[in-house]
Simulated scan of single mutants.
Amino acid sequence: MLDSYPAEGVSLSDTKYRPLPDQSSVPGAPRVPGAVAVTMEHTTVTITREQPKDHIVWSVIGLFFANILCLALAAFICSVKSRDRKMVGDLVGAQRHGSTAFSLNVANTVLAAVLLLLVIGLCFHNPMMLGALSGLWLRLI
């Protein structure tokens, strides 16, 4: 069966099978006829991650001015923990404690605002309430 096909002779000195001139200078370049050698350059991209926020200033202000249900105290503790985690290098823990401090600060601020609006509304609705609240305030001091 192999006898039916004639053997074809290929000359190695034929010009169409020589490597291209630009391929000979590149090590590891493919030795394929018509191939083009390409030199690749590598680029390194450095991505810096933003430091997580600890919200400690907001926690201190809430602690001194409006500590509703001790939420500002809990937020201050979480803020300090977040700052400690950041100093150690645990950015995930710092982000978690900072997020908790943010949520507690938001809840404290909203409750303080609602309470303030409620007191202002009651004082304008009933002027006698203003006297009762000032008397209560003086007893607490």
Score class of each variant (00 low, 15 high):
A29I: 03
D14H: 09
L71R: 07
T48Q: 14
Q51W: 02
V110D: 06
P52Y: 02
M128H: 07
D90T: 09
V45M: 10
I120M: 13
L136I: 12
S134Q: 12
S11H: 02
S11T: 00
G34L: 12
N126Q: 09
V10N: 08
K86V: 04
R85N: 11
W137C: 07
T39C: 07
T100M: 15
S103F: 08
P30V: 07
E8Y: 11
S4V: 09
E50I: 09
T44L: 13
A29V: 04
G135Y: 02
N126I: 01
L122V: 02
Q23E: 02
L117K: 03
H125W: 15
K86N: 11
S82N: 10
L71V: 00
A101W: 03
G131H: 09
F124K: 15
S11A: 05
Q95V: 05
V92C: 05
I120W: 06
N67F: 03
K16N: 06
S79H: 05
G131S: 14
L20S: 08
L136P: 01
S25L: 11
M40W: 11
L116I: 06
V88N: 14
V26F: 08
L122Q: 04
E8W: 09
H55I: 02
S24R: 13
S99P: 02
M87C: 07
L71P: 00
